[in-house]
């Protein structure tokens, strides 16, 4: 399972870097989205993928039944997903605004602030 997920993470990273290097704004957005997916999936994979009891204490007990899964990676990923969702929404609006102003979605034409 880990092996397969590792391949998926690698493919996601490769795809996102490819998209980030394209001059199109739409591809930039998709690339940023894939990049955060890749990081989240990486967190999930290295946090150990296990098929054990859920980390919830049964009624009346003080602790979950051993062996139980580690809930921390999911909590981290959840936080990261929420953050990346918000930031991506902002980036989309920013790029749309830029498209409205300049009439192009070609990032190579954005050289105004470079010199």
């Amino acid at each position: 399972m880990e092996g397969m997920l590792a391949v998926v993470v690698g493919v996601l990273y490769a795809a996102s870097f490819y998209l980030l290097l394209r001059p199109s704004m739409v591809k930039l957005i998709i690339g940023l989205g894939l990049l955060s997916h890749a990081a989240n999936l990486l967190l999930f994979t290295v946090g150990r993928v296990t098929r054990v009891n859920p980390p919830i204490a049964p009624v009346g007990a003080l602790a979950p039944v051993e062996p139980f899964a580690n809930p921390l990676p999911q909590a981290l990923i959840l936080t990261a997903i929420v953050i990346s969702f918000g930031v991506l929404a902002f980036a989309m609006v920013l790029l749309y605004r830029s498209y409205q102003m300049s009439g192009t979605d070609n990032l190579n034409e954005m050289r105004r602030t470079d010199s």
């Binding site: 940023l32 955060s36 890749a38 990081a39 967190l43 290295v46 921390l72 981290l76 930031v87």
Partner: peptide
């Protein structure tokens, strides 16, 4: 954003 994603990946690996 790219830097944040790398930071997150580093955090994950370290964990």
């Amino acid at each position: 954003l790219i830097s944040s994603a790398l930071f997150l990946a580093g955090v994950g690996i370290l964990y």
